[in-house]
């Protein structure tokens, strides 16, 4: 799996970002730059959720598929934000099952896939919990597993650790990077925290 970007993002016709890079399977590329430079816009271009004032030129190729203009839901690019964004009306288990492919049937198989994902992050027995009752670290872990259960072909991280306190941050950071490497996912992380980039250990691109 690999993600190859060769894009220009224009805001109202004016060039805002220009980036050309290939991200290899299991590689973590960090994008850094001051706030307002358009780091999140870059990720929105890849997920296909750019606001209407923006347009993207060039191409985004994920695993050989040109997804530059594909509908967001068929791109298979998983994303994690600084907020966990667990759906508030679904239980922890249903949040995870939301990500799980439809092809996994029957219901019992879906359930056991979700249970084992919970076990992977030491949260066995949390299936029917209300996400609002979880701690910050637990929520971050559920959000990660939800993204991974959808079997994405790339992982995008939008300042994913900035809301966590220092000890939790390094713990979750390792969890995310380890899981991504284990699945050979190309990872693109935008951050303004130099420690994030350092921990990722990969290339760092500075946007200016």
């Amino acid at each position: 799996m690999s993600l190859s970007l060769n894009i220009e993002i224009l805001q109202n016709g004016v060039q805002m970002i220009s980036l050309a890079t290939d991200i290899a399977p299991g590689e973590v590329v960090s994008v850094m730059g001051p706030s307002g430079i358009g780091k999140s816009t870059l990720l929105a271009a890849i997920t296909g959720t750019l606001p209407p004032a923006f347009c993207v030129k060039g191409n985004i190729v994920l695993n050989g598929r040109d997804i530059t203009h594909a509908p967001p839901h068929s791109r298979r690019a998983g994303i994690l934000f600084q907020d966990d964004l667990l759906f508030p009306h679904l239980s922890v288990g249903a949040n995870l099952a939301f990500g799980l492919s439809r092809d996994i049937k029957p219901r019992s198989a879906r359930r056991s896939r979700v249970e084992s994902a919970l076990e992977d992050v030491a949260m066995a027995g949390f299936y029917s919990r209300d996400p609002a009752t979880l701690s910050g670290g637990q929520r971050a872990r559920v959000a990660l597993m939800r993204t991974l259960l959808a079997e994405p072909e790339a992982l995008l991280l939008d300042e994913p650790f900035s809301r966590l306190d220092a000890t939790l941050r390094s713990q979750i950071r390792h969890l995310v990077f380890d899981h991504a490497r284990a699945r050979d996912l190309p990872v693109l992380m935008v951050t303004h925290d130099a420690q994030d980039a350092e921990a990722a250990g990969g290339r760092v691109i500075h946007l200016t």
Partner: peptide
């Protein structure tokens, strides 16, 4: 409604009507 919920749902493969 938090728009990033829809971004997440889309990235998990949910079509606009499923969202």
């Amino acid at each position: 409604v938090e728009p990033r919920h829809m971004v997440v749902a889309a990235s998990l493969g949910a079509s606009p009507s499923a969202q």
